[in-house]
Design a protein around this nucleic acid. Structure first.
Lengths: 146, 146
DNA sequence: TCTAGATAGACAAGCGGCTTGACGAGTTAT
DNA sequence: ATAACTCGTCAAGCCGCTTGTCTATCTAGA
């Protein structure tokens, strides 16, 4: 049974294609200064209540790396730092309007990337697929692959 | 319908977990000096007939990056360089016995990583899943995600 | 057969994203 | 009050990759 190998390869291939297509689409929508890894940061920041340290944990990197990422996103106008209401050390992160626009663009890009797959499988089979994958997916935040 | 987003997230999460588990398992089998990206190189080299330039194209990186990777794998004893029978410029790459052992370890690790999923879904549903993913998978080599 | 262009691989320099390490300012628990 | 911890920052360095350049070799066309 080396279904396992086939399966692994398929998941990897699919995931790679997904990232690549979404990134290309987002770029084409005018967000050329964003790279795939930024999406994972947006995902956490858009939820609200995130500090740089929270973001670091979410991404599975050091605080310094997260701070650097935040600095870049602030400089590019996607993220704002607000004073934290209860902690003078920390700063709350939030998306700017541009940040939200980028998030919407990514959402749309994801839909566009998945659409053909949905069509190939048919609606019913696609739903089953989503259900199956839901069973398999690990809990916790989604991080850049490795 | 934002199944699309859910689906994307699931595929990404699954792929990340897969890579991480396989890597951990391979490490535990004694190949601690291999990292996930090396697997993609082994995949091409094990087929045979690969030069450094071939490998570069397969991985989607520059020749220099591929050469550096090969150098590392040679130094660590996984890969050998042989003279090319028809081209004095090129050198054919091949796996050493250690390289083959690592490949087998990775195969086994993939099986181990997938096994629980197979169990969760049941054999029939798992086969369907593989079939569906096969329909969706892009052709061409599998590369490190991004 | 000679020559122009392409290709394999190596050498060098540099960049970007990440790490470890150390630190002051602020918070929390004892 | 004080000790331990945490947030964010500064600094230095590593590693995988890039661009740029070069020689040796192969290939196709006049």
């Amino acid at each position: 049974m080396d279904d396992a190998l086939v399966f692994s390869a398929l998941v990897l291939a699919l995931s790679g294609q997904l990232v690549q297509e979404i990134h290309a689409n987002v770029s084409q929508q005018g967000f050329e200064d964003l790279r795939p890894a930024h999406g994972f940061a947006f995902a956490r920041i858009s939820v609200g209540g995130a500090t740089t340290a929270d973001l670091a944990e979410h991404l599975g990197v050091t605080k310094q790396a997260a701070a650097q990422l935040v600095e870049e996103l602030v400089r590019k106008g996607y993220v704002e730092r607000h004073p934290h209401p209860h902690d003078a050390r920390a700063r709350l992160l939030g998306l700017t309007e541009t940040g939200w626009a980028a998030t919407r663009a990514a959402d749309q890009a994801a839909r566009a990337a998945v659409a053909p797959w949905r069509e190939v499988l048919g609606e019913a089979r696609f739903s089953e697929l989503v259900a199956d994958l839901t069973l398999l997916a690990p809990p916790g935040p989604i991080r850049p692959a490795w």
